[in-house]
Design a protein around this nucleic acid. Structure first.
Ligand SMILES: [Zn+2]
Ligand SMILES: [Zn+2]
Ligand SMILES: [Zn+2]
Ligand SMILES: [Zn+2]
Lengths: 140, 140
DNA sequence: TTATAGATAAGATACTGTCTCATCTAATGG
DNA sequence: CCATTAGATGAGACAGTATCTTATCTATAA
């Protein structure tokens, strides 16, 4: 399967375990990400929330996105200079194909880092980013 | 060597060949990138230019960065939501280790795409990004 | 029910980047 | 060397994303 990721229940538990409150807004935000394997922006989330929460503050969107990210509920990537978020994949290390049109992701179960760290022994390697971009079957 | 990239002379030729003018500002901008293998921001470039060109417009910085990028003089990447530029590598396809502190790059001559395109035959692959982050010997 | 730590709205603010428009200048040819 | 002009620049307005401050509100637990 391609969906071994954080779910709404785990996410709400994480909030509770860390002393954060369980609000209706947060439940809706988490569900927004839980129901799809897609990268979405703060603006996407704001537009999703506005009909149900008139006057919701943009700051609430950003604060919760960052909170969720810091708790490991969401993962994020920069696409075209804008932060995108998706529910965090919680199984073994992998990378993503990302659709340029809809943000849909497909897992790529190949990481080239093992072969590369040898070349970098005088460097301190902290992180890496490997993403493939294009169009998913539905969007191409 | 690790420096098979566009140089100042080639860059100025590209400008001329495409009907763009050769100004002192542009020469300095290109030289700023030519002299190092580092990713730099628009702000870095602005700070480099200001002492010699009092009152230089930020728009001149951005316009020329985009012009140079469109002519293939510079390549760019997003780091922490901010565009970074470096002199374009003009030899065979490769990737970069990038120092989080100084932007210094080291070429990585391994690309995992060959093995992966098979898994993505129902997708339209357009591009990919593979970058390794950490600290160079001088910064670690 | 009350106390309170945490959550939110509102608006100001910061930062990166783009646009318009008037002015200026490098390059060309006479 | 001068005139012409396409391209370059400066100035400041503007846009988009994201953060900060402060007063108010509320979920939670005692
Ligand atoms: Zn798609
Ligand atoms: Zn990896
Ligand atoms: Zn460094
Ligand atoms: Zn590659």
């Amino acid at each position: 399967m391609d969906t071994n990721k954080m779910n709404t229940k785990q996410a709400l538990n994480l909030l509770k375990q860390n002393g954060y409150k369980y609000t209706g807004k947060r439940e809706d935000m988490i569900h927004f990400f839980d129901k799809e394997n897609r990268y979405r922006t703060a603006k996407d989330l704001l537009h999703h929330m506005e009909p149900n929460y008139k006057g919701i503050s943009v700051d609430t969107i950003y604060r919760n996105l960052h909170l969720f990210h810091s708790l490991g509920i969401l993962e994020s990537t920069d696409l075209n200079g804008e932060k995108h978020f998706r529910m965090k994949c919680d199984h073994h290390h992998h990378h993503h194909f990302i659709c340029k049109n809809c943000g849909e992701t497909k897992e790529i179960h190949h990481c080239p880092m093992d072969k590369i760290v040898q070349e970098l022994d005088s460097y301190e390697v902290e992180d890496h980013k490997f993403e493939i971009y294009g169009f998913c079957p539905a969007c191409k």
